[in-house]
Amino acid sequence: MEDLAAELQQALRRPQLRHLAVVEEAMGTQTLALLATLNVEHASSDQLAEAASTPTTRS
């Protein structure tokens, strides 16, 4: 496990290819928008699960 951790650290410390700053900014904005969408979907699934587990009464 320690060997794998060391290998990952070395890989993450190597210089990486970069995009133009404006492109990286746009990608960050898109990522935040996708995360916001994911949060909404998660909340919706929680509400659905709660509604599905709530007993209903029929008249």
Rank of each mutant, 00 (worst) to 15 (best):
D3M: 08
L38W: 14
E50S: 12
D3F: 04
V22W: 05
M1P: 15
V23A: 08
A36Y: 00
M1L: 12
T37Q: 06
H42R: 11
T31R: 06
M27W: 07
T57S: 10
R18Q: 10
T56N: 00
A49E: 04
A51M: 14
R58M: 15
S59E: 12
V22Q: 09
A21Q: 09
V23I: 12
A5H: 08
T54R: 04
R58G: 15
E7G: 08
V40C: 00
S45L: 13
T57M: 07
A33C: 13
T54N: 02
L35V: 13
L4M: 09
T54Q: 02
L12S: 08
A52N: 09
E24S: 12
A33N: 08
L48P: 02
R14Y: 03
R14I: 00
L32N: 06
E2Y: 07
L12T: 09
E24I: 03
L35R: 12
A51Y: 09
E41T: 06
S53C: 09
V22S: 11
G28N: 04
A36V: 05
L17E: 15
L48V: 07
L48F: 04
A5P: 02
L4P: 06
H42D: 10
R14D: 04
Q16C: 05
Q47D: 15
M27A: 13
R13Y: 02
A52V: 07
E41G: 09
P55N: 01
E7V: 07
T56I: 01
L8N: 06
R13C: 07
V22N: 11
A5D: 10
E24A: 12
S44W: 05
Q47R: 13
Q30G: 03
T54P: 01
V22K: 02
Q16P: 08
A26I: 03
V40L: 02
D3C: 05
A33E: 12
T37I: 05
M27F: 09
P55T: 01
